[in-house]
């Protein structure tokens, strides 16, 4: 079973995302900020990371930049999942190595389509 790390400081968002990803047959772990997520990735690199932008301690962009420096840190597909919905943020995220970008609010259909896009689900 493929592993998914959901990184968001909102427990509600984590719960919603967990339900969608579990239905898509992923094994889920969670982190409340970028620092926690980085530690989890160092221990066990997931196939996919759903990543919020604005979080305490370490934000999503800082996490992504650190992740991509890690050994095998380029293997995880990263999909930003954030309320930041302007082109400037999208450009920053993709430049930093994000594979896809979701603007909240999201639904199952959007997440599934992005998973297909990054090759983690069949079309």
């Amino acid at each position: 079973m493929k592993q998914c790390l959901i990184v968001d400081d909102s427990s509600v968002i984590r719960k919603v995302a967990r339900k969608i990803m579990e239905e898509a047959n992923f094994e889920i772990s969670e982190a409340e900020n970028g620092q926690q997520a980085l530690e989890k990735c160092r221990h066990n690199m997931p196939e996919i990371i759903l990543l919020d932008w604005n979080m305490p301690v370490m934000n999503g962009l800082e996490f992504l930049k650190e992740l991509r420096k890690e050994p095998s840190g380029d293997t995880a597909k990263v999909i930003f999942c954030t309320t930041e919905n302007d082109m400037d943020h999208i450009t920053q995220a993709i430049s930093a190595g994000a594979n896809e970008y979701i603007m909240k609010p999201f639904d199952k259909e959007i997440i599934i389509s992005k998973l297909k896009e990054v090759g983690l689900l069949e079309a």
Binding site: N85, D86, M87, I90, T91, I94, E100, Y101, I102, M103, F106, D107, E109, I110, S113, K114, E117
Partner: peptide, 20 residues
């Protein structure tokens, strides 16, 4: 809408061909 441009469309196309 924001919803419509995310359903199925890779972000690369959003960046390349859309403006807010």
């Amino acid at each position: 809408s924001q919803f419509e441009v995310q359903r199925g469309m890779p972000v690369k196309y959003l960046m390349k061909h859309f403006s807010q």
